[in-house]
């Protein structure tokens, strides 16, 4: 398929579990094609395996079935072509803001002036000018995550993977970060896979919302968000889609709790 950046085919992931004596199926038969430059949100009830799917794309875990291809190459472990932004930031506390952002370019062995040009660019892009020489634990949560995003982008990945990056932030900081992220995405149009459990966040950000079922995670619905950007979080169209997705998600949450829910870690 031309233009397909991430090709996920019949992917399944099962974990060995200490709580039950059979493997826990986190993902089952997930097939999904993500286009170049597309912004896709993975949405689902907690424990549905959306982070598992993201980790499989990142190469942190190996699917027990099926295959994931990125830009035509089968995923075989993590790599710099797939940048990652973590919910818990994952910043290196022993590096300053600048050193964190420069780490990827430095590993690539780029010339010094090129490295500082890149880091200046991204420091400004995420509004952290003046904080270059601060250490992460001197920053607020929102600022930390801006460093996390800048660090991932500065490495020029083909794909940006984000695992509930704003999950630890308060509601207002969160909305501001969503605006910011869209601005950054529109500037560079990188393929983006974003995991969230917030319906509003998914509808606000994504070209496509992939709704997963409760465990084992399968694709329940592939929803194209046909609302023009910039999106108004209070518009009729936004609410209408919100209600539709909410109904679908409720079904899954309901189903999960009815099944007595052998909730096991792995998400």
């Amino acid at each position: 398929m031309p233009g397909t950046k991430i090709d996920i085919r019949e992917v399944g992931v099962a974990f060995a579990s200490r709580l039950v004596n059979h493997p826990v199926v986190a993902l089952e038969d997930v097939s999904l094609g993500i286009e170049e430059g597309e912004f896709v949100c993975l949405l689902g009830p907690s424990g549905c395996g959306k982070t598992t799917l993201l980790n499989a794309i990142a190469g942190f875990i190996e699917p027990t079935g099926g295959q994931i291809r990125v830009a035509g190459r089968a995923v075989d472990g993590p790599g710099p072509d797939r940048g990652m932004v973590f919910q818990e930031y994952g910043l290196f506390p022993w590096f300053t803001v600048e050193q964190n952002i420069q780490y990827g370019p430095r590993l690539k062995g780029l010339p010094k002036d090129e490295i500082s040009r890149i880091s200046r660019h991204y420091v400004e892009l995420v509004h952290l000018a003046g904080f270059e020489h601060h250490y992460p634990n001197e920053l607020s949560g929102g600022m930390k995550q801006r460093v996390g995003i800048a660090r991932a982008l500065a490495n020029q990945p083909e794909i940006l993977l984000m695992d509930e990056p704003f999950g630890a932030l308060d509601a207002q900081t969160r909305e501001r970060m969503q605006d910011e992220l869209l601005r950054l995405w529109e500037a560079e149009r990188r393929t983006c896979v974003f995991v969230t459990h917030s319906i509003a966040e998914a509808i606000f950000l994504a070209d496509r919302v992939i709704l997963l079922t409760a465990r084992p995670g399968r694709i329940k619905r592939d929803i194209r968000v046909a609302i023009a950007r910039p999106r108004d979080r209070t518009s009729e169209a936004f609410f209408a889609l919100y209600r539709e997705v909410n109904t679908l998600l409720r079904e899954e949450i309901q189903r999960a709790s009815e099944e007595g829910d052998e909730r096991v870690v792995g998400d």
Binding site: M84, F86, G90, L91, L107, P157
Partner: peptide
């Protein structure tokens, strides 16, 4: 050692 730091370094190409 926090595993998340190892993962972060891996995705940056370390």
């Amino acid at each position: 050692v926090d595993p998340i730091h190892i993962r972060a370094a891996q995705t940056l190409g370390a």
